[in-house]
Design a protein around this nucleic acid. Structure first.
Length: 838
RNA sequence: GCGGACGUGGCGAAAUCGGUAGACGCAGCGGACUUAAAAUCCGCUUGCCCUAGGCAGUGCGGGUUCGAGUCCCGCCGUCCGCACCA
């Protein structure tokens, strides 16, 4: 055995063997218990990022570990391959998005292979291939037939220079990111998915996800935003056009007697009607729309209103309340209009103060009336100045007002959601074509299923901005499937979040003629452990939960929650370096000199910036390929698992990867001792440590606490190194190889072969644990006086209280502190401590 | 503004049920081996008084308890999410 582990040889060798033997191919017909381990599939941007390495290493350890524990593991990988970056590359580099994407996939796949992940590559998929998106089109038609797809006029961000629709993230400070032109809102007919139909179920379902982080569940809950309240109609004192009433929504119907005005959004139908005859109102509304899009500092934005001159009539008191158009009322929430109760809503109060409106109190914490100051009272209390609900508490008053409104027929209790339907239309080329045809005679007609997939044309140009599908000479011209007359294809493509909403099902089952086989997919689903970045906590995870429910609704699958367990891992961070002239420096340009850092080439002093997420702009990036070249896959994998808890950020350091590399070689040398049995005596203490470690590491891996598992392995390695040769030690070394196999598989495989063990360690079982060896026969007991540690004594486990007390009192340290006093009280926790109270 | 998480050595962190705070790693210091370096090995490493030993110590201030990093109350700070959601 060589003294130093040679990763360059070993990595390639074992990766080849695993490939040849198809070691990690999941068997659909297996009778073993199943485990589906999935990491969020990457966008093929070109290079694997260190964050991917951390993500996939975690999943890989779990997948390999579960295999060792006897599970049939599904651990697949694919590519979220549609999206804008490919089109940007096409515009900048004159390369076809498909060509660019496929080249990136090839690159990144080679990078992933170098890390030795236990992936079932036979199930690899890329969402940009018709073999995938064709099935997605068919699922889209299923949803359409189930009434979950509809078209609606909706505003998009329009770049008037590039003549193109922009995604929200392409709009920076109200301007197009490429052209810098002021972005306009344009109304287009767009496709929507009825996610709101499942709002309640998506919210309810969160309750069953006990293996999800609370944080993510809370974020989804807030996003769905359920509010219950009263929706009711105010009568207007004047009929405007044919409008006689104003519908409002309130979560605080109990405060209705405190309403002193009403307000509506600038785009409200009534406001638009009034603006027809009131030019200054039209001007004000225009102003609202402009500031509305800026949205940057809403917090500081002043509340502005315009008195329409119209009044609404209070349903209980008959009082006339002025009706304003106000910039703080949102058109697309509730009814786009509100009753304003200044005493009990901060926005209403700010507005009332500005426009000198009354602020009557109707809820009082102490039951007494008192003037309202600068802060609205939103807490609980007793109703006052409120007619028939006087004296009630807030909750009772809500119920009473809703009941009365329903009785009298002018309102009803309702639930309003923050969640909006999912707009899936994108006016882009590189996405799944929406399988519909527009016919002047027949309207919007679905593409017949035998004509799927609707494939993207290859001969497109990106010389002019806009959607290449729209201006392609032939693609969109087709015959109507119903009447055969000339018609036009839909040129919108689907949001890429649709692609990632069902890929985990396709991984589980991929027949050629349909999206998936129900029974086959159900055997794997739900995903047992899903791992990815917290940036997908809301949209991706919510859409995937919706899409799965939609398929369930269509009878396609008997699963509602796609991911039973979710884990969101932290980022990989790195120190930042700045040159004296303020330029960011990359780690390669910088060298450490004692306590300080200098520029390698010029010896200038470098100032050390914050530890931040790796980003190109800060130049604090480390390329996985370079590191693997230098240290091999296992050292990188080991580093990814060490030190930081996986949900927290992991600071990348040169010394850290060095340390991992040192440990790889320590293990390697230790594995070389596997044949040494010495005199062959049993080493009971070592066996205890081994069995405790095997047990502890298994539990840590199950809980994804890799940093703890790593620490336990270090401890065991330290103990084995110091132990004298024995049969126990030789056995412990073999067991150690099994323990580290999920984490550093190449090293483990190489050592396993060297030790002359049969088969691959990848196919070996996790070492068994002898429960008897988990408990120590000796324990160290803390001896405290008044809660302060004075001594420790090592005794046989399970020693009775009386004996422990006697031993504690016999301690010289204790005697000195007690100064001859007798303890007033003695607290004995068997096998843990004795506390003497004097 | 609302919601949430977190705060432990020089650094990343452990402490699973309220029971020996700082396991394990990094950095640092001292030593062995070496002509030398690398690699490796051994030892020390929270601060202070430094002597057996003692005192202080888990963001700050209180509290509960025989005993608090852990539980309760009130602050301070950092990070994340949402953002006029009626």
């Amino acid at each position: 055995m060589q003294r130093r582990f040679n990763p360059l040889e070993a990595d390639a060798k074992w990766q080849h063997v695993w490939d040849e033997k198809q070691s990690f191919r999941a068997d659909d017909a297996s009778g073993k218990p199943r485990s589906y381990v999935l990491e969020m599939f990457p966008y093929p941007s070109g290079r694997i990022h260190i964050g991917h390495v951390r993500n996939y290493t975690m999943g890989d350890v779990l997948a390999r570990f579960r295999r060792m524990r006897g599970y049939e593991v599904l651990h697949p990988m694919g590519w979220d391959a549609f999206g804008m970056p490919a089109e940007n590359a096409a515009m900048e580099k004159k390369v076809h998005p498909g060509e660019w994407t496929r080249a990136n996939i090839a690159n990144m796949k080679a990078q992933l292979k170098r890390l030795g992940f236990a992936l079932d590559w036979s199930r690899e998929l890329a969402t940009c291939e018709p073999e995938y998106y064709g099935h997605e089109q068919s699922l889209f038609l299923d949803l359409y037939e189930a009434g979950l797809v509809y078209r609606k006029e909706s505003a998009v961000n329009w770049d008037p220079v590039d003549m193109t629709v922009l995604a929200n993230e392409q709009v920076i400070d109200g301007r197009g990111w490429r052209s810098g032109a002021l972005v306009e809102k344009r109304k287009l007919n767009q496709w929507f998915l009825k996610i709101t139909q499942f709002a309640d179920d998506l919210l309810e379902g969160l309750g069953s996800l006990d293996q999800w982080p609370d944080k993510v569940k809370l974020m989804q809950e807030n996003w769905i935003g359920k509010s219950q309240g009263l929706q009711f109609r105010f009568r207007l004192d004047t009929v405007i056009g044919d409008i006689e009433t104003l519908e409002v929504f309130s979560t605080r119907p109990d405060t209705i007697f405190g309403a002193s005005f009403a307000a509506m959004a600038a785009d409200h139908a009534l406001a638009l009607e009034l603006a027809k005859t009131d030019p200054s109102l039209a001007g004000f509304a225009e102003e609202c729309r402009r500031t509305g899009t800026a949205a940057a500092d809403v917090e500081t934005q002043e509340k502005l209103g315009y008195d329409t001159g119209v009044s609404v009539i209070h349903p209980f008191t008959g009082a006339k309340l002025p009706l304003f158009v106000a910039n703080f009322v949102l058109m697309d929430y509730g009814t786009g209009a509100v009753m304003a109760v200044p005493a009990h809503d901060q926005r209403d109060l700010d507005f009332a103060r500005k426009y000198m409106l009354p602020t009557p109190r109707v809820v009082s914490p102490d039951g007494k009336d008192a003037p309202v100051g600068d802060e609205a009272w939103t807490g609980s209390g007793t109703l006052i100045n409120s007619g028939f609900i006087d004296g009630m508490d807030v909750e009772a008053a809500k119920t009473a007002v809703i009941a009365r409104a329903q009785e009298e027929g002018w309102g009803k209790g309702t639930t309003v959601w923050r969640l909006r339907d999912w707009g899936v239309s994108r006016q882009r080329y590189w996405g799944t074509p929406i399988p519909f045809i527009h016919c002047d005679a027949c309207g919007v007609v679905p593409v017949p299923r035998d004509q799927l997939p609707v494939t993207l044309p290859e001969d497109v140009s990106f010389d002019i901005p806009g959607n290449p599908l729209e201006r392609h000479p032939a693609w969109k011209h087709v015959a109507c499937p119903t009447c055969s007359r000339p018609a036009r294809r839909e040129t919108d493509t689907l949001d890429t979040f649709v692609d990632s909403s069902w890929y985990f099902i396709r991984f589980a089952s991929q027949p050629g003629d349909r999206p998936f086989d129900k029974a086959e997919a159900e055997r794997w689903l739900p995903v047992g452990q899903y791992i990815g970045g917290v940036e997908h906590a809301i949209l991706h995870l919510l859409y995937a939960r919706f899409w799965t429910r939609a398929l369930n609704h269509c009878g396609k699958i008997d699963v509602k929650e796609p991911f039973a367990g979710l884990f969101t891992q932290g980022m990989v961070t790195h120190e930042t370096y700045k040159a004296p002239d303020g330029r960011w420096l990359s780690p390669e340009e910088v060298e450490r000199r004692g306590e300080n850092y200098v520029v390698k080439s010029t010896d200038e002093a470098v100032s050390l910036g914050r530890v931040e997420k790796m980003s190109k702009s800060k130049k604090n990036v480390v390329d996985p390929d370079d590191i693997i070249d230098q240290y091999g896959a296992d050292a990188v994998r080991w580093f990814m698992l060490s030190d930081s808890p996986p949900e927290r950020d992991l600071p990348w350091t040169a010394s850290g990867i060095e340390g991992s590399w040192r440990f790889i070689n320590r293990l390697w040398r230790l594995f070389g001792d596997a044949a040494e049995t010495g005199e062959g005596s049993e080493d009971r203490a070592l066996l205890r440590k081994l069995h405790q470690t095997v047990d502890g590491v298994a539990r840590d891996i199950e809980m994804l606490s890799f940093n703890k598992a790593v620490a336990k392995i270090y401890e065991l390695a330290n103990v084995i190194e110091k132990a004298a040769p024995s049969a126990s030690r030789a056995g412990a070394i073999r067991a150690l190889a099994l323990l580290v196999a999920p984490m550093v598989p190449h090293l483990a495989e190489e050592a396993w072969a060297d030790m002359g063990q049969p088969g691959l360690i990848a196919d070996a079982s996790w070492p068994p644990v002898d429960p008897e060896l988990l408990v120590d026969d000796e324990v160290t007991i803390a001896v405290q006086v008044m809660g302060k540690l004075r001594d420790t004594i090592t005794v046989a486990k399970g020693l009775p209280r009386a004996e422990l007390e006697a031993l504690a009192l016999a301690s010289p340290n204790v005697a000195r502190t007690m100064e001859g006093a007798a303890p007033k009280k003695v607290i004995v926790v068997p096998d843990r401590l004795v506390n003497l109270v004097i």
